[in-house]
């Protein structure tokens, strides 16, 4: 039973990965690296853990996801389209004038997007605010947030980290997409994050560090995070930037790439 479930999630992730490469490839350029590293976490959240209703995207007691690294939008759009929030046809309008699918996620343009992002470092604070509001309202909805490892250079991330622990927000589960790369290169060389797990622990978070492309590990860590009481949970996802796309995988240049539709099709056929 469990095995079957993971098999289905894996094949769903492959589908989302293909769809995302197609979507970016159709435009010809985009944030391929940071889109590929979050395929598994988004698949796990949207196809298993989150209580959501694509027919009612603003349902009051839904679980919420804030994609604070807003440039990962393409992957989330593919998930939302596949879930039925909007037509798959829209994917090929990505980032063109007048689109409802901009490069960075925008809650006022796209059904299913819970928070606007793109200026890095702000999403976790918004997650703290949403978690506080849910607690005030006795709303059982959980708040999930995904931040980047480069994004974690922003001081505001750590201000939010301190606040979430201070307010004992056990309805908040955050993920760090630890793909080891930012725009200018490897995080270790640009701004060394040191022992990230120790940092989050010292800020008062229940912290786990797992393989962010492994469904069993992701599932287990989210289940465990849900049972934690009295403090927020951080799951550090060890990921690979550009995962699954040979010309992008773990490349310093993978943040934003230009590639034509032929290359996209080829990358898709390799999956």
């Amino acid at each position: 039973m469990i095995e079957k479930e993971f098999k289905e999630l894996k094949s769903k992730a492959k589908h989302i990965r293909k769809l995302t490469i197609d979507t970016i490839g159709h435009l010809g350029f985009g944030h391929i690296g940071g889109s590929m590293s979050i395929v598994e976490i988004l698949t796990m959240l949207y196809y298993k853990h989150m209580r959501i209703d694509p027919m009612d995207p603003k349902k009051k007691d839904r679980d919420i996801l804030i994609l604070s690294k807003g440039h990962g939008g393409p992957t989330l759009y593919c998930v939302l389209a596949d879930k039925g929030y909007f037509s798959l046809d829209l994917l090929h309008t990505l980032n063109t004038g007048g689109t409802s699918l901009p490069s960075h996620v925008d809650m006022n343009r796209t059904p299913g997007i819970d928070m606007t992002a793109g200026s890095l470092g702000q999403g976790l604070s918004a997650a703290v605010g949403m978690a506080l509001a849910n607690r005030l309202d006795k709303n059982p909805g959980l708040v999930y947030a995904i931040i980047g490892d480069g994004e974690s250079d922003e001081g505001q991330v750590w201000e939010a980290a301190m606040a979430a622990a201070h307010f004992k927000l056990d309805n908040l589960i955050a993920f760090t997409d630890r793909n080891k790369l930012q725009i200018d290169g490897f995080t270790k060389n640009i701004m060394d994050l040191g022992d990230l797990k120790a940092k989050w622990e010292s800020f008062g978070w229940f912290t786990q560090q797992i393989d962010g492309h492994n469904f069993e590990a992701i599932d287990k860590s989210i289940n465990r995070a849900k049972t934690e009481t009295g403090r927020p949970a951080m799951i550090i996802l060890e990921t690979v930037k550009g995962k699954g796309v040979s010309f992008a995988e773990n490349k310093e240049s993978s943040h934003h790439m230009a590639f034509d539709y032929e290359m996209a099709k080829q990358a898709i056929s390799c999956l």
Binding site: F29, G70, N95, P102, S103, H104, D106, T116, A117, G118, S119
Partner: peptide, 16 residues
């Protein structure tokens, strides 16, 4: 120094 004035932020959109 601030780069990408106004509409030259183009594909990065409203936040940028």
């Amino acid at each position: 120094m601030g780069s990408d004035p106004g509409i030259t932020a183009a594909y990065n959109g409203g936040t940028h």
